[in-house]
Write a protein that binds this DNA or RNA. Structure first.
Lengths: 205, 205
DNA sequence: ATTGCAATCTACTAATGAGTAATATATAAT
DNA sequence: ATTATATATTACTCATTAGTAGATTGCAAT
């Protein structure tokens, strides 16, 4: 027999509710940071957009910089997870690079990923910048590794991995600035077009 | 016989002095906007960096948004001039595209060009955004024209001009975020590497 | 001389927004 | 019952900063 639905919450449920609220706050903040920029967004506005008051944000997340830092961490974690997953895939280096870049695109046009691209390093404290840089470096390293593996197995033409990683990252980051999911070209199609175009450039000849 | 150097200035000299001061103000503002972001930079700070007071900025430039708008206009004018010049050059479409992109790089790592890339559209009033968009579109149009000319004369492989223009723009914009002129790789070398890498991708096969 | 204009300052205002203190309520634990 | 903890609020403080008013100085033209 099922337990009757009870209004009395278990510890686990409360934990989950808290986490859900935390995420809702972060998401609301990310959206507003992306739309208006970090400094132009007040925590009062973020709170108001969820129908709550500012101190509640402090209760769940701490100060404004921490809010941003959490958003960036989520975005970067997504990128890193995508890199890990792509690297574990079977296929040539180019195959796996294509998979990674496609997901890179999806993450970059998502709220937390956009945050990573749109926030300048300048917004954080020196401490925060250091942590952020380290996370970004991990993603860059993974990207380079994929390129190198492709060169080694002959699926990618001989290029400079470092420069190539930068140009690819730049090309993938740019859409965060202008692409709208609700525009004429749906995300899948846009990702395919951009990634195809880049892959053509990297194909052996 | 030469005129004696006189401390009494002609109208022209005064005009020039004014213009020089105006530019010095814009440059100082651009540098600080790039380093800390628009909203995190106060006009008091900009003024202080030149040893003057805030009202002087208002005397020369008007309000804060106008200061930014001027900076952006200068950067975009530089880009457009580079495009014009490249298009007037002789050589294949690819040759001219290479010339344009190389200069695009130099402009983008310069103070006013950086401003264009680092400032989100969000910072300006709706009016300003409209003007800015129009200027950006002109540059994008020129870039696409070069790509199309290259495809037509066979110096560039058949690609989608729109998508290619976006990926190129993204790849060229990215260095504004991380490249430092005083780092290990000098601007010329960095430009050459990046542009070469992109051109390889566009070469016919 | 006087009037006007350009450049610059000091000293304000008015608004905004980060962060906190004190408080209220509800639930959970003892 | 009582005490502690989590959630959320109102109502502040304090610092920052865009923008302005008004004064000052000096040069230039009449």
């Amino acid at each position: 027999m099922e337990k009757a639905r009870s209004p009395f919450k278990t510890a686990l449920q409360k934990q989950e509710e808290r986490e859900e609220k935390r995420m809702a706050l972060l998401h609301a903040a990310a959206v507003m940071f992306n739309a208006q920029g970090f400094h132009a967004t007040s925590l009062d506005d973020v709170a108001a957009s969820l129908g709550i008051s500012k101190p509640t944000i402090y209760h769940y997340l701490g100060n404004k910089e921490q809010v941003l830092f959490e958003c960036l961490t989520i975005g970067l974690d997504q990128l890193f997870a995508a890199a890990d997953k792509a690297r574990a895939e079977i296929g040539t280096g180019m195959d796996r690079l294509r998979i990674f870049l496609t997901n890179y695109f999806f993450i970059n046009i998502d709220d937390f990923g956009r945050c990573v691209i749109l926030s300048g390093d300048d917004t954080l404290s020196p401490e925060g910048v250091k942590n952020l840089r380290a996370m970004k470096r991990r993603v860059d390293t993974a990207l380079r590794a994929l390129i190198i593996e492709g060169i080694d197995d002959g699926s990618i033409t001989a290029v400079d991995p470092k420069i190539t990683a930068f140009t690819l990252a730049g090309a993938m980051a740019w859409p965060a600035r202008w692409y709208s999911k609700t525009g004429p070209t749906p995300p899948d199609a846009m990702a395919a077009q951009i990634v195809d175009s880049l892959m053509t450039g990297l194909a052996p000849r």
